[in-house]
Simulated assay, not measured.
Amino acid sequence: MKTSGNTILVTGGGSGIGRALAQAWHAAGNTVIVTGRTLASLEETVAGREGLYAMALDVTDAEAIAGFPADVVTRFPALNVLVNNAGIMRFEDLSGSRDLADAQATVVTNLLGPIRMIDALVDHLAAQADAAIVNVTSGLAFVPLAAAPTYSASKAAMHSYSQSLRAQLGGRVEVIELAPPAVQTGLTPGQETREGYLPLDTYIAQVMALFDQVPTPAEICVPNTLAFRNAERDGHFDHLFAQLNGQADRP
């Protein structure tokens, strides 16, 4: 993926990793469009930055996604990079029958949202030079957090989907998976200052350094993610799963 001269669309660009990525790519010399449900938060992302634009889009709305390309491509015909970043994380108790609203919302946002965005824009992207799709997954795609089961499963599904997408789009659109570790963002309550989580600015600096590599790695995994990514390969999965889920001291 080129480091500058792109026109990049970032979903979920109103806060957290999406906002920070959009601003970092803009600073590197790219035109960037951020989308999200709340225009006010998007305006905060783009404030004072010429060449950084906001467009409202709810990735849970299938009809809105289907109609989105006509608008965004008309305004930004050079669009060549899609970053599927929008996502939610909900904690769920699986120990008994429950309301499945959180599970459904997670699947629609984290899995169907990116699939629909890719489907809506893939023909346009395939016709562009230096086209890329970046799918944001998680370290939890490789070692799940039991308290967030559908979130972890949705990210594992996007990891698998990205592999298939890369195989099918080979030679036309570069497919990159970006798998964050635990980062200090607003993804869950109190996470912005949670001890042991990677500061957001540190994470973004590490990510941008990996994107600067030539060729760009197919998987952008910073050091804190690699233990999760390689857990199965290295025989550490059971230990890391127990540690992550507070079971390390259980018999």
Rank of each mutant, 00 (worst) to 15 (best):
D201V: 01
P217D: 09
L187F: 02
Q213D: 10
V207H: 09
A218I: 07
A209F: 01
E192R: 14
D212P: 00
A205R: 15
T188N: 11
V207F: 09
T202L: 01
F211H: 12
T216H: 10
E195L: 07
P217N: 13
Q191C: 08
Y203R: 01
Q213F: 06
L200P: 04
Q213N: 04
R194G: 00
A205C: 01
Y203K: 02
D212K: 12
L187Q: 04
E195K: 14
P199H: 03
A209W: 02
T188P: 05
I204N: 06
Q206L: 12
P217E: 05
V214S: 13
T216W: 08
V214G: 00
I204E: 08
V207C: 05
Q191E: 12
E192I: 07
Q213M: 13
L200A: 07
E219I: 11
D201A: 14
L198M: 15
P217W: 05
G190H: 09
D201S: 13
M208K: 07
P217A: 11
E219L: 15
A218G: 09
T185Y: 03
Q191N: 14
Y197V: 00
V207W: 09
Q213Y: 02
F211C: 04
I204W: 11
L187G: 04
Y197M: 13
Q213S: 08
A218C: 01
T216S: 10
Q191W: 07
I204K: 03
R194M: 15
R194Q: 14
T216K: 10
A218Y: 06
T193Q: 12
V207S: 07
P215F: 05
F211W: 13
E195I: 09
Y203W: 01
P215L: 10
G190V: 05
A209G: 00
V207Q: 04
P189G: 12
T202F: 02
Y203I: 02
I204Q: 12
L210Y: 04
I204L: 15
E219N: 09
P215G: 07
A218L: 07
G190E: 11
G186L: 03
E195Q: 15
F211P: 10
E192T: 13
P189L: 04
G196M: 07
Y203N: 03
P199L: 05
M208V: 05
T185W: 02
G190N: 11
F211A: 09
E195W: 06
F211Y: 13
D212I: 01
A205E: 15
G196E: 08
P199S: 11
L198F: 00
T193H: 12
M208F: 06
E219P: 00
T185A: 02
G190P: 11
T202E: 01
E219G: 08
L200Y: 03
P189T: 09
V207P: 05
Y197W: 12
